[in-house]
């Protein structure tokens, strides 16, 4: 069998990058659970986890170990395959999004230019949007396969919430894309060298941020797992690491949406007010600095998500739908039309 000539270095480079990004997402998600508990403790005037390791730093490992050793329960009346498929899909869709994000400047190793991006496809932002729109299946399938009324209710809530909030998110993105004129993630970052998009699109960012909260099922939009109405919502019947996958996927989603928002509106790996490419640093050092900058921005977003969670109470379901359909969509439409008019006026 004849295969096309394959550049093995290319495959190797991408494989290493994929492994790096996936393990990074896992690591960040692990320590996001620790950060969440510490921040919750701080906001509620408690101490938080402090037993496992210094300052409780080993707490995520202890939690993971506990989840692995718990008994695995699959309800008798449910469809076993779909019951397992639910958390798997949640995890896969959470990890897939990171494939088009530009993580930093490219650097050169032995004359090869290595891009810190897995795939720079020319529909980059639509790819993210597509994967996000698939994220709902994890919740829906898991909730349905649990064969439990609370889980089913949660699954249906989650589905309608995610479909509703995708619309204003897409409309906010259209206004952003009018400024850039390209869907590639790398050109969205390059376009912000002069000024971040948040300056030109503050309303668009606000809408995008609210929708990101809703898509990640974070408070004040955590209706699919509202514990005082639905016990635990869609993951009530889950135990052991299958439950862990659902919880983990939420933190990975939070991390990735922080990175996406930094990339779209806050210049990605760009350092504000300086021209770091002119410092004459080694390319790998520059790449490392850019990566650190992007991580810092993402960490700030994760903190913001947690701050909101422990400050703002949950919406009622009708309030959620009202906000999505009657406030955010008209606002996003106005934002889109105004942006279009201004872009057209300035280009003339």
């Amino acid at each position: 069998m004849y295969l096309l000539a394959i550049d093995w270095y290319f495959i190797l480079e991408k494989a290493i990058l994929v492994a790096f990004i996936v393990s990074l997402s896992m690591l960040v998600a692990m320590y996001a659970t620790y950060a969440e508990r510490k921040i919750a403790a701080f906001l509620q005037d408690r101490i938080g986890p402090n037993r496992a390791g210094p300052w409780g730093l080993l707490q995520p490992l202890a939690d993971g170990g506990k989840l692995f050793f718990k008994e695995e329960i699959i309800p008798l009346a449910s469809s076993k395959f779909l019951f397992v498929l639910g958390p798997v899909l949640a995890m896969i869709t959470a990890l897939l999004t990171s494939a088009v994000i530009p993580w930093s400047h490219s650097f050169s190793v032995g004359g090869r230019e290595v891009a810190m991006q897995i795939a720079d496809i020319n529909i980059g932002i639509l790819y993210i949007f597509g994967v996000v729109s698939l994220g709902v299946y994890g919740i829906m399938i898991g909730g349905w396969a649990s064969n439990n009324k609370f889980s089913l209710l949660a699954a249906i809530r989650g589905a309608s919430q995610m479909v509703s909030y995708e619309l204003p998110m897409g409309l906010a993105l259209i206004a952003l894309l009018m400024l850039v004129g390209d869907l590639r993630m790398s050109s969205i970052v390059a376009n912000q060298a002069g000024g971040w998009h948040i300056i030109y699109q503050p309303l668009g960012f606000l809408i995008f941020f609210i929708c990101a909260l809703a898509e990640c099922n974070r408070t004040p939009f955590d209706l699919p797992e509202a514990e005082n109405e639905l016990n635990f919502g869609y993951h009530q019947e889950y135990s052991s690491m299958k439950l862990g996958f659902y919880l983990f996927a939420e933190y990975i989603n939070m991390f990735i949406s922080g990175v996406v928002m930094s990339t779209l509106y806050f210049g990605g790996y760009d350092i504000p007010f300086v021209h770091e490419a002119g410092w004459g640093l080694d390319s790998w050092l520059l790449s490392l600095i850019g990566f650190g900058v992007l991580m810092t921005k993402a960490a700030l977003f994760i903190f913001l998500f947690m701050w909101i969670r422990w400050t703002i109470p949950r919406f009622r379901y009708d309030q959620l739908m009202n906000l999505g359909w009657k406030k955010l969509i008209p606002l996003a439409l106005i934002n889109m039309v105004v942006t279009a008019a201004v872009v057209l006026w300035l280009k003339k």
Binding site: L126, F129, G130, S133, M140, I156, A159
Partner: peptide, 17 residues
């Protein structure tokens, strides 16, 4: 990608619903 966003991501969710 539009096939995935519109059909797999929205219409099939409503079917499942």
């Amino acid at each position: 990608i539009v096939n995935i966003i519109v059909y797999a991501g929205a219409i099939m969710v409503l079917f499942l619903f």
